[in-house]
Design a binder for these strands. Structure first.
Lengths: 341, 341
DNA sequence: GTGAAAGCGCTAACAT
DNA sequence: ATGTTAGCGCTTTCAC
């Protein structure tokens, strides 16, 4: 392990110049810079991040706090963030809070505070005011993804608008008995997304002059299995079966497709189904959906942090770009066979 | 941010004693320990990990290098490792190599070497000899999960045995035309698992006196979609349709179930299907499978590292515990209707 | 633009 | 069992 001193000696400069040349801070003559870089390369020198962090107070490490790893949305966000960070020369330290509250407390008390990270990304996690305050007091930037954190810049798609778009797609096809599978109350705790999507759905119906029928709502847990059972309830009724289902997630929508098949219904002839996400599996199932782009959300979260950590020349530009979403019509939605029914 | 000195003052001891009391290294009287702990708590003191790492050479941080995040096996391993590390007071730094080779080189050259981690876990990644050597030279323990790394302790289920078990389940049911969906060659590069599973399958057949028929093999990419297409090929033949399919992964098995349905076949009446994994979705689809336990594999990898990093009293105990796997019979396998066919 | 030197906050000999 | 103190390897004033 070559140290900075050896590099300095080989390059014929001081350690201070080496540090400046390699980190890019402060001015170094091109000649000196070249010499240093060559020397460093020859010796296979890599700065010790600990020594560097200790001296500078910067760690080049971002903490990502996330409740699940094994779900599409979360792993996608993580992937986006990771890749983006790697490009910026940052490490990503993962804190997966799938466990109980104890784990969460421990993460905050002992890990995030240990000066290990320069900033944190909280994914679909409603931090308490106290947690936010502590982070702020430490001067650590914080950005949320997919969950509302009071007083913190958060990246979320406009759930109301997305749900409205999905519902309007169905309405535009001439559906009027449109069921909705949304989150149950428990799910609403950490992210209000189920509520917002339901609001968008109901708003679209009202705008089209369609009455909201509570019997056309079924709660589920955002999984395929949950969607399956909810859809069976919805589609199993003997009279006035809905002609379309809008599920608040693609996994639930896929469950619905499977349920319809098991009931002998043909999608989309007998029932149209649409979800939200554009999940990995959606294309395979021919599921119409409104795509959100979680990878992008992860990348964007990093971008925002980078701007705060290393303010560039063109600062404060993308202050509040709305997150993109996009209707993707595939083969699970169509005009109802008999709109009059 | 209170420092160690303030804690020492408040507790009426030296900084050395504080360090010892808080880290557990070296002997400290219970009385002193209590005083220190109280003082630390009062001041909200948390050691600066950088200063500690710099002085001690230990980072309490493990690097996990992993090729995918959005696949069941990988996210499960990661989850297990994360949880286990958190319990041991370690951080997890994630290096997701989903990108190209450049990313990989960069991770090794600039990150892992930066003395940021005490050890690394490589998941389903075949490290080069050079990479392994460098890590070893740096004194960093290394353990592999799910992929063979020459000269490195690696955790993998016995793929041959697992495949054999799955196949024997089918044979025991009286199937003899048993197809296999396995990995294509490309997949074999970084983990030889497809080959091993195929070997186990063929061995089981031979042992039962059943001839291996190359036409009953179809390659796929370990996804649901891939399994679907492969199964359609296998099941779409007009004569001598296989009565059972053994897929090398549950996702491919689920794809096969879907394919069978689309062909109008009833599972398991017309065709039995079994996979490997016990994927999240398998229970929902009633898929018989051989469970492996990736979470456990992640946890075990951590255990092994901990033993090397912090040798306990009962060292070197679980040197080579074989990894568990377990046949789970659900509703996708049954006796063929007409074994004679 | 560059160098000298004082820390960053802790740990580990070594001494007692 | 506890205190003293010299670093760990770098960054960053401050002078030049």
């Amino acid at each position: 392990m070559a140290g900075i001193e050896e590099v300095a000696k080989l390059a014929g400069v001081s350690t201070a110049t080496v540090s400046r040349a390699l980190s890019g801070r402060g001015h170094v003559s091109p000649a000196a810079k070249a010499k240093v870089e060559e020397a460093a390369a020859r010796l296979g020198y890599v700065v010790s991040s600990n020594a560097s962090s200790l001296a500078s107070g910067r760690t080049r490490n971002i903490g990502v706090v996330i409740p699940f790893l094994n779900r599409w949305f979360f792993s996608s966000v993580l992937e986006g963030a990771q890749q983006s960070l790697l490009r910026s020369g940052y490490d990503l330290t993962l804190y997966n809070l799938s466990g109980d509250g104890r784990e969460r407390a421990s993460v905050f008390e002992h890990f995030l505070m240990r000066q290990r990270v320069d900033a944190v990304i909280a994914v679909s996690l409603e931090l308490t005011e106290r947690e936010v305050t502590r982070l702020h007091d430490l001067g650590k930037p914080l950005v949320g993804v997919g969950g509302p954190i009071p007083g913190v810049r958060t990246l979320t798609i406009d759930d109301v608008a997305v749900a409205r778009l999905a519902t309007e797609h169905l309405i535009g096809l001439d559906h009027s008995r449109i069921a909705h599978i949304g989150g149950d109350l428990e799910f609403d705790l950490d992210f209000h997304l189920p509520t917002n999507r339901r609001i968008g759905y109901e708003a679209a119906l009202r705008d089209a002059g369609i009455e909201v029928d509570q019997r056309l709502f079924a709660p589920a847990d955002f999984t395929i299995r949950g969607g399956y059972h909810a859809a069976k309830q919805l589609l199993g009724v003997p009279h006035d079966r809905p002609t379309a289902i809008f599920a608040a997630s693609d996994e639930m929508a896929i469950g619905s497709i499977l349920a319809a098949r098991d009931l002998g219904l043909v999608v989309p002839r007998d029932v149209s189904i649409i979800g939200i996400d554009d999940h990995d599996l959606s294309d395979f199932f021919g599921l119409s959906t409104v795509a959100q782009f979680p990878r992008l959300q992860g990348e964007k979260a990093v971008e925002i942090l980078m701007e705060q950590l290393e303010p560039g020349p063109d600062a404060a530009a993308p202050a509040a770009t709305p997150l993109p979403y996009e209707l993707r019509v595939r083969s699970s939605t169509a005009r109802p066979v008999d709109p009059a029914r």
